[in-house]
Design a protein around this nucleic acid. Structure first.
Lengths: 215, 215
DNA sequence: ACGAAACACGAGCGATCGCTCGCGTTTCTT
DNA sequence: AAGAAACGCGAGCGATCGCTCGTGTTTCGT
């Protein structure tokens, strides 16, 4: 095998110049804009190239097809989403009282979705490529497991199946808040506090009377 | 003006036979199936005709274009949704204790969405025709007003703006439950009770200590 | 019974979109 | 300096889709 590091692709010995890297990133940014505006299917590759200020042929110098654009952009967004979740659900936030814990966890996740509108469109769009959907569901499952771990700290003697349902419901409530904030772009502050209130009231009865710091 | 009743269209003196009515309904049913499967844009008119067992030309004997199919199907679904909401949010259910009230209101609405998967796709799809989206938002606003009325019975001295936020959040929580049930088609019963629990816990703190029968 | 109108068919038109290809330009390597 | 390779362009190909049109069949009014 060649001793030179082969960037990340599988078997494409395509060497890129600095200009090419810039173009590729520029095209991904343009794709994020267009995807967020009209969704995956309705986003034409020519429109993405136009948004990036290049020709259709140039776009296909960096991506083999339209699906690959969504896959790469989705991968980049998923990695950012993973780290954002890691920070938001960190153990140090678990030591806080429930109200502050909800604050500390919800705020960064909401901010990420606000800053990356393409994320919600690509991950929940009914027409996104299967590879994107599958990758998202994998990460979604991992986040769900993390929430189950947190809930298990408070509910040590509750069946795992119930905790799973609990965690999935918490995530669904958060997604409901996302939709709510997307529709009512004005009054974002009011709906954000309302989302936190809904989550707090849902979580309080079961973990309100437990010791925050685990053994 | 002509003294003959002109069905429902604007200015199309197209007389239909019984066979034509059957074909039109048959095509709408087929469209509901295809729309629910792949969404509005990805649903080809040829596929709808094939699902109905007729030729593409026959489809256009009854609908001027693809958008009209979605508009008519959407209108039919919206009317059923309106009556379902009217029954679910009827005053007689308001006299019940909160837990039973949530049961009595949520169950029929969930059953409607379960029986009409095209409804969720057409109303919340990002690619549905504007006319469908606008009609849905109008009805959605009406439902929201109805919920505001109910909430105002319990919170007579709360600003109207807060009650609006409250009502919109309740609807968002219900929609979250819809998504949850759609994803976990197994364990529907468990997630249905979980949705009711979330709604109950969100509503209980504010209307739990009030007189159910209004003055 | 018979003419008109509604119903039914399916090949195919025009437009759109993903993507290609030939050729010219810029950048890297030696 | 010079060849190679990456970069860039944009007209246009092939496929798909919404929709039409010419033609034939069924149903209705009289």
């Amino acid at each position: 095998m060649p001793d030179q590091a082969q960037e990340a692709a599988a078997s494409k010995p395509r060497r890129r110049q600095a200009r090419g890297e810039r173009r590729a990133a520029q095209l991904l940014d343009a794709a994020a804009v267009v995807f967020a505006e009209v969704g995956y299917t309705a986003a034409s590759t020519n429109a993405i190239a136009r948004e990036a200020g290049v020709s259709p042929g140039t776009l296909y110098q960096f991506f083999p097809n339209k699906e690959a654009i969504a896959v790469e952009l989705g991968g980049r967004l998923l990695e950012q989403w993973r780290t954002t979740n890691g920070r938001a659900l960190s153990p140090e936030n678990v030591q806080l009282p429930l109200a502050q814990m909800v604050d500390a966890m919800v705020d960064p996740l909401l901010e990420f979705n606000s800053r990356n509108p393409a994320f919600h469109v690509l991950m929940h769009g009914p027409d996104s490529p299967g590879q994107v959907t599958e990758a998202f569901e994998t990460l979604h499952g991992a986040v769900c497991r993390r929430i189950e771990e947190l809930l298990a700290l408070y509910l040590p003697d509750t069946p795992k199946s119930e905790i799973t349902i609990f965690a999935n419901t918490v995530l669904a409530l958060f997604k409901a808040g996302l939709d709510l904030l997307a529709v009512h772009q004005d009054e974002q502050a009011a709906y954000r506090t309302e989302l936190k209130r809904a989550l707090f009231r849902y979580l309080d009865p079961v973990i309100g009377d437990c010791l925050p710091p685990g053994p």
